[in-house]
Design a protein around this nucleic acid. Structure first.
Length: 314
DNA sequence: CGTTCAACCTGGGCGC
DNA sequence: TGCGCCCAGGTTGAAC
């Protein structure tokens, strides 16, 4: 679930713990697969205790909690929520899926109240790592992650993805091209950009990349402002256990068969790279011809009924 | 280079 | 009620 807006919301939700001291760290038995955790739980707990939380930052869909103390090299507790992970300062949805529990005390003379920072993950696909500066760079540096989706520019997208033969929606999910976009927001971004998700990247002109980048910045910023998307009775919650609000503004994701709120046409669901893609065939017409100026990113297209859908690849 | 598939996991919903 | 199957916001690596 968590994409950039949800992870950024988690980051903001725990940023108030900066300056706090970790007095105890627990990684409940069996809570994480061996490969999903590094170093091993006991050593990680030992290395975290008595450290201070220095900063809380985000790299794409990961949160990096910087920990340190006088005379020690800083380390980063890097948490990757993947599908169902949540960072919480509130009671967890279930006790059995708590993967990490930090007891922290706020800065200052008073050692109360004790606060808890939890990583909760139902499916257990998330990862917890404690890395030094070199490890952080390896895991979250420029070789691994492209520019952040909140600030990405059209020329950056054009340079990084412009030669690819992949469909633009599949390419937007590639974290090395642009960091933070997942399946929900890729769909919403391309709807706003009025670009067919199947369009090969190479067919997009520079202007279209500007349109995509602008749509990405706007959609992601709005989603952050609404504290992410909580779909249906879904799991995603803010750090203090509230639902996000951006799902109310979804135009295509999860809306197959319903009328497009922009044009009234029917939203479709197709499969790309084994994942659902939602789009409006009317608002997001197939590109015609090769790269051309001003087309792919264009606004409303009036007459466009003649469509031969042949997706049924199922 | 790109696509497909399988894994990693749990749990909800659906058809029978 | 139960069972089997499909689905789900992500990432990685192998095979082709």
């Amino acid at each position: 679930m968590p994409e950039l807006p949800e992870v950024e919301t988690m980051r903001r939700g725990i940023a108030g713990l900066c300056g706090a001291r970790i007095v105890a760290a627990r990684f409940p038995r069996g809570s994480c697969r061996p490969l999903a955790m590094a170093p091993a739980p006991a050593e990680m707990a030992e290395r975290l205790e008595r450290q201070h939380i220095v900063s809380v930052s985000r790299y794409g869909k990961r949160v990096a909690i910087e920990v340190g103390s006088e005379g020690k090299a800083p380390h980063w507790l890097v948490i990757e929520p993947r599908m169902t992970g949540l960072l919480l300062v509130a009671a967890p949805p279930t006790p059995q899926h708590v993967r990490m529990e930090l007891d922290v005390v706020p800065p200052g003379p008073r050692h109360f109240p004790l606060q808890k920072l939890l990583f909760w993950d139902q499916r257990g696909l998330g990862t917890i790592r404690l890395l030094d500066a070199a490890g952080l760079d390896r895991a979250c540096g420029a070789a691994k992650l492209g520019p952040d989706g909140l600030v990405v520019t059209g020329s950056e997208l054009a340079v990084r993805l412009g030669e690819s033969r992949r469909g633009v929606k599949v390419a937007l999910l590639d974290q090395k091209g642009v960091a933070g976009i997942g399946n929900i927001y890729a769909a919403e971004i391309l709807h706003r950009a009025a670009i067919d998700p199947r369009t090969p990247c190479r067919a997009l002109a520079a202007e279209a990349w500007e349109t995509v980048a602008r749509a990405a910045r706007e959609i992601l910023a709005s989603a952050v402002a609404h504290e992410g998307s909580s779909i249906g009775d879904e799991l995603y919650r803010t750090a203090d256990n509230r639902k996000g609000g951006f799902q109310k503004l979804h135009r295509v994701y999860g809306l197959a068969g319903t009328p497009c709120q922009t044009c009234g046409g029917a939203i479709e669901r197709i499969v790309q790279a084994q994942r659902s893609t939602f789009f409006c065939p009317v608002c997001q017409p197939r590109p015609r011809g090769g790269k051309r100026k001003g087309r792919a990113g264009g606004a409303r297209v009036a007459p466009r009924p003649k469509l031969v859908r042949r997706d049924a690849k199922a």
